[in-house]
Simulated assay, not measured.
Amino acid sequence: MKFAVVVFPGSNCDIDCYHAIEDVIDGEVDYIWHQQVDLSGYDCIVLPGGFSYGDYLRSGAIARFAPIMKHVEKAAAEGKLVIGICNGFQILLEAGLLPGAMKKNENLQFICSIETITVENNQTPFTLEYHLGEEIKIPIAHGEGNYYCDQQTLKELQKNNQIIFRYKDNPNGSIDDIAGICNKQGNVLGMMPHPERAVSKLLGSEDGKRLFQSILSYWREKKSESRTYSSASI
């Protein structure tokens, strides 16, 4: 399996994501500059946290128009895995790959803390290694993490089981305590908490490690199914 970590001007969590993939789960990973236009060789695309383009206009509003994003959209449409973390989540929202929008935190302050997150759906490629309802410790660091959507969208997210993570003690005012959502197909995940910063006890938590392990497990299972189908067709 091959991962791509997209780097925008202002990204600052790309190295953390690279480390989590290469050193923690022993995955193959490349940095991909925002002007690159080919993601065909990758199975999972990671949009990391940071302050892309200085967060001018709105967080993620300029990065949404980077050349790479057309190819992220193409990869998502093809069923490849895409995960946006913090600023990456904001970019996915701006690009329309996930519904809703981000507002400033309810207290109008930047928040940096370790939060308790509840796993609301463990049947996605990103959460297979977690238990349903499990409480995990994942850090957050954002000024615009107050997720918002209209009531109709919220009902659809709830109905389709697209709410993947919720805050136990909502730190930013997000509607329905939402910390992470996926698209209807389940292959695109956006989350404000930083799993790449929770991959070792030295960091205060290793609960984020299983998110990356889940991705790897999902890919291996898909590969195994593909080989079985190919053998049966001969």
Rank of each mutant, 00 (worst) to 15 (best):
F65I: 03
N107I: 00
Q90R: 07
H131R: 14
L98F: 13
H142W: 11
L132A: 14
A141V: 05
R220I: 15
D207L: 09
D169Y: 05
A63E: 02
D23G: 07
K159C: 11
E129F: 01
E156S: 12
Q152M: 08
D30V: 01
K80F: 03
K209P: 09
L154Y: 02
L202F: 13
A75V: 04
S224Y: 12
I25A: 03
G208K: 00
F165S: 06
Y218S: 06
S214P: 05
V7T: 10
P171E: 00
G100C: 11
S174V: 04
I181G: 03
D23Q: 15
V29W: 02
D207W: 05
I85D: 00
K155Q: 05
Q109H: 10
M191Q: 05
S113C: 11
V7Y: 07
F3V: 03
C13S: 12
G27T: 02
I140A: 05
E221S: 10
D14F: 10
A179M: 08
Y148K: 05
C112Q: 06
I114A: 12
R227N: 05
A4R: 06
P99M: 15
Q151D: 13
M191W: 05
Y42D: 03
G145Q: 01
H142N: 07
T118Q: 14
K209Q: 15
N161Q: 15
I25Y: 06
L57M: 12
Q35N: 06
I215Y: 05
Y53A: 01
L189E: 03
N160C: 05
V6F: 07
I45F: 11
M102P: 00
I111W: 04
M191N: 04
G10A: 01
N160I: 03
D26I: 03
K184M: 11
G143Y: 03
C44I: 12
L39I: 07
S52L: 14
H19M: 07
A179T: 01
D16T: 09
N172F: 06
M191K: 07
L97W: 14
W219T: 08
Y18I: 13
L92R: 11
S217G: 03
N172S: 06
F65H: 13
I68T: 05
N87G: 08
L202A: 15
E134R: 08
I114S: 08
G60C: 08
N146D: 09
P125L: 10
I15C: 03
M102L: 14
A232K: 12
S217I: 08
K103S: 10
I215F: 07
L128F: 01
G49C: 15
F65P: 00
F51Q: 01
I117L: 13
T116I: 13
I83C: 04
E196T: 09
P171T: 03
Q162R: 12
E129H: 06
S52A: 15
G88R: 11
R197M: 10
H131N: 15
I25T: 10
S230R: 08
K2C: 02
Q162K: 06
G173P: 07
E135W: 04
S233H: 11
N161G: 12
D169G: 04
D14A: 12
Q152H: 02
E221H: 10
E115T: 07
N170Q: 02
G173K: 01
I140D: 00
A20D: 12
V72F: 12
P99E: 15
L81F: 08
I45Y: 11
Q123A: 08
R64D: 06
I15N: 02
G145T: 05
G50F: 09
Y130T: 07
T153N: 05
T118R: 14
F89R: 12
D26Q: 15
G204S: 15
